[in-house]
Amino acid sequence: MHPQYIQHNVAAGDTKEGILSILPFIPKTGRISTIRIFQDGDYVFTHNLYNISAPAKVVFDVYRFEDGKVVEHWDNIQTLETTPNPAGRTMLDGTIQPTQLTLAQTAANKALVKSYIRDVLMGGNIEKLPEYFHEDQFIQHAPGALDGPVGFNGSEQTYNRIRMVLGDGNFVLAMGEGTAAGVPTAFYNLYRVENGKLAEHWNVIESILPRDQWNPTNNNGRF
């Protein structure tokens, strides 16, 4: 761990000491299973199942490395939904390994996801859906969602800002913020791209703590 470690989980203490302070509270029986792992330059992002305390959690962790050590960390945490969604899928099943592509192809996939979020999730331009999907061939792993590009119809989620987009081959993780049922929320959306269209989707959403509930040693913010 880098001596200048920056923590963006605002419930935790900042710096390396913040991590060390929570280790005694992690039970020896706790387990973390990494389902997917990706790399984009100095960034590594993982899709995990945390069985540390009940109930189990689905977590995206994002790490930035410097000089071979972790220097910065972001995460998003959601309680595991044990009931499959209406499409019969869970929050963690589906395609695991990325298809290795050129840097230019990966950049194009990242640009596609950014454009989709701006056009549809932020802009509400539903008429542009055919630009991003192969008809109804879109696999959804989000809780409560149907397959297809309109699987979230009726959702009370509003996407306001893209914070970071990372990619590894045909997988792209978009980190952003907005509101869910009126509550400030962080959105982490993982997409698999196939033949220039969005083909599969996983997500984790988490409410953003109000400033007065942050760990007093942490002033970094969620992003």
Rank of each mutant, 00 (worst) to 15 (best):
M1E: 04
H2N: 13
P3I: 10
N9A: 14
V10N: 07
G13N: 08
D14V: 02
T15W: 05
T15Y: 09
T29C: 12
G30T: 05
R31S: 09
R31A: 03
I32N: 10
S33Q: 12
I37L: 12
Q39Y: 10
Q39W: 11
Q39V: 12
F45T: 01
F45C: 06
H47A: 03
N48D: 14
N48I: 05
L49F: 04
L49E: 08
Y50A: 10
Y50N: 05
I52W: 11
I52S: 07
I52A: 12
S53R: 14
A54W: 13
P55W: 12
K57M: 15
V58P: 04
F60I: 09
V62I: 15
V62C: 12
V62N: 11
Y63G: 03
F65C: 03
F65N: 04
F65Y: 13
K69I: 01
V71N: 10
H73R: 08
H73C: 04
W74P: 06
I77E: 15
T79D: 07
T79P: 01
T83G: 04
A87Q: 05
G88C: 08
G88T: 02
R89L: 02
R89V: 01
I96P: 00
Q97H: 11
Q97T: 04
P98W: 12
T99G: 10
Q100A: 13
L101Y: 06
T102L: 11
T102A: 08
L103Q: 15
A104V: 10
A108M: 10
A108P: 07
A108F: 12
K110M: 11
K110R: 08
V113A: 07
Y116P: 07
D119M: 00
D119H: 09
V120M: 03
M122N: 03
G123K: 05
I126H: 06
K128W: 05
P130Q: 12
A142L: 04
G144E: 07
D147Y: 01
P149F: 01
P149R: 01
G151P: 01
G154P: 03
Q157D: 13
T158G: 09
G167M: 15
G167S: 14
G169L: 14
N170K: 02
F171V: 12
V172Q: 15
L173I: 09
M175C: 12
G178Y: 02
A180H: 08
N189T: 11
L190T: 04
N195C: 07
G196W: 07
G196R: 13
K197H: 11
L198V: 02
H201E: 04
N203L: 08
V204R: 08
I205P: 04
E206I: 02
E206W: 10
L209R: 09
D212P: 00
Q213H: 03
N215L: 04
P216D: 07
N219V: 06
N220R: 13
